[in-house]
């Protein structure tokens, strides 16, 4: 295998339900073709600890909702040529951003989840990354090159975008993928 010729692809999972990653895997047999062209260098489904350098394409699922994610996405941006927002959470904020309508939504959402609805031992976790006051779509923090909306996006569209990019073309999103 001549890995050097393969595109270095990464996927990141922020505040999302993992559905977009499922969609990615849902490309089924198309994955086999894809695997010939790409090398997965970082992903929740691959055991790599540190986001590597010189990544060609990074697909990001999920909204940016805590300080660790903010750091992560900025770090990944620096090391990536093409950054793609994958799915509604990354593109719009979607479900994780529903809390934005609340006043002091970071505190309110923790209270709701860990105190008000707790069956036993109600307490707010402290050893975890701190929530941002609001959940944001990716492009409010870093430059995003392409967007694939959908909740989740159709796997065919994910395949289309990656294939187009690998072929050096610009994907046209008109009529391709709807929100929701």
């Amino acid at each position: 295998m001549v890995t050097a010729e393969k595109a270095r692809v990464a996927t990141i999972w922020l505040s999302g339900c993992s559905g977009c990653h499922m969609t990615f895997l849902d490309q089924d047999e198309a994955l086999i073709d894809l695997a010939k062209k790409i090398q997965l260098v970082y992903s929740p489904i691959a055991d790599v600890k540190v986001f590597p350098e010189n990544v060609d394409v990074t697909l990001v699922e999920g909204a940016v909702a805590n300080d660790h994610q903010e750091e992560m996405i900025k770090f990944a941006r620096e090391r990536t040529k093409i950054l793609i927002s994958l799915g509604d959470c990354a593109v719009t904020g979607n479900v994780p951003a529903l809390r934005n309508a609340w006043v002091k939504s970071d505190e309110a959402v923790l209270k709701r989840a860990y105190i008000e609805t707790a069956d036993v031992n109600p307490q707010i976790p402290t050893e975890v990354p701190e929530l941002l006051p609001k959940a944001h779509p990716l492009h409010e923090f870093v430059k995003v090159d392409y967007y694939i909306p959908g909740c989740p996006p159709p796997s065919g569209v994910v395949n289309y975008v990656i294939t187009e990019l690998l072929a050096g073309r610009t994907p046209n999103m008109e009529g391709k993928s709807k929100y929701g």
Partner: peptide
């Protein structure tokens, strides 16, 4: 949004 290819919104959204 789909037909016109509005794949993201350039403005910060209001909730």
């Amino acid at each position: 949004a789909d037909e016109l290819g509005v794949d993201h919104v350039m403005f910060e959204r209001n909730w």
